[in-house]
Write a protein that binds this DNA or RNA. Sequence first.
DNA 1: CCGGATGAGTTTCATTTTGGAACTATGGCA
DNA 2: TGCCATAGTTCCAAAATGAAACTCATCCGG
Lengths: 112, 112
Amino acid sequence: MKWSDLSDNWCPVARTLSLVGDRWTMLILRDCFLGLSRFEQFIASSGMTRHILADRLKRLVEAGVLERKAYTTTPKRYDYVLTEKGQELAPALLTLKDWGKKHMPVRRATSA
Amino acid sequence: MKWSDLSDNWCPVARTLSLVGDRWTMLILRDCFLGLSRFEQFIASSGMTRHILADRLKRLVEAGVLERKAYTTTPKRYDYVLTEKGQELAPALLTLKDWGKKHMPVRRATSA
DNA sequence: CCGGATGAGTTTCATTTTGGAACTATGGCA
DNA sequence: TGCCATAGTTCCAAAATGAAACTCATCCGG
């Protein structure tokens, strides 16, 4: 079964995951909740590649989770900001944060 | 950046997602919360392919989220059951469920 | 004993997705 | 004019995924 087919699944968890259940989307949203809003900020913060970010932003805007607002018109540049719908994902991010703090300690394999 | 590198990220959300942030893992956990526990049940319920399921189960067991318990010894067969650590992901699933019910209506593109 | 069914994977191969890096476009600024 | 910044887009190789077939062990019916 294709992943995208889940958007019509009977299960609301599956439908939610069809939008935010890939490897990077939630991190973009985390960054939005941290106050970031621009392409280069997301790149710097998350470490994802540029074309994946471009694709995910497009999907999130189409889904109504983010809104793309121009902040300059002449070179067209945009802020990506959470909509009301996007804001309501906050509880999900918070539960993931709490679980991570409790159950996913940093291994620090790269510490000095 | 490789996805798997996130397991040592400073952000607990990112660390959590390094385990459950792929396209299918959360659905396995959803099934566990619904009471399913066996390979063929997960296959039937989720629609994922067999080798992806096998891989994800292995990862979840290694991470201590699921426990693999033999229920027959002579053709070795196993139940996959949530550990305490896994149980504690319930709030995350519930927030995703609530958000999906509110914001991801079924489009029913394939209805009669 | 033979043939099929069941449960849990494993293997193979084609298609997609991703990671990494370079390239494009627009305009500011020295 | 040349360089920088922002925001993408394009290209290619590497990795992940989807689909289907195959394996293995055991039970069951005849």
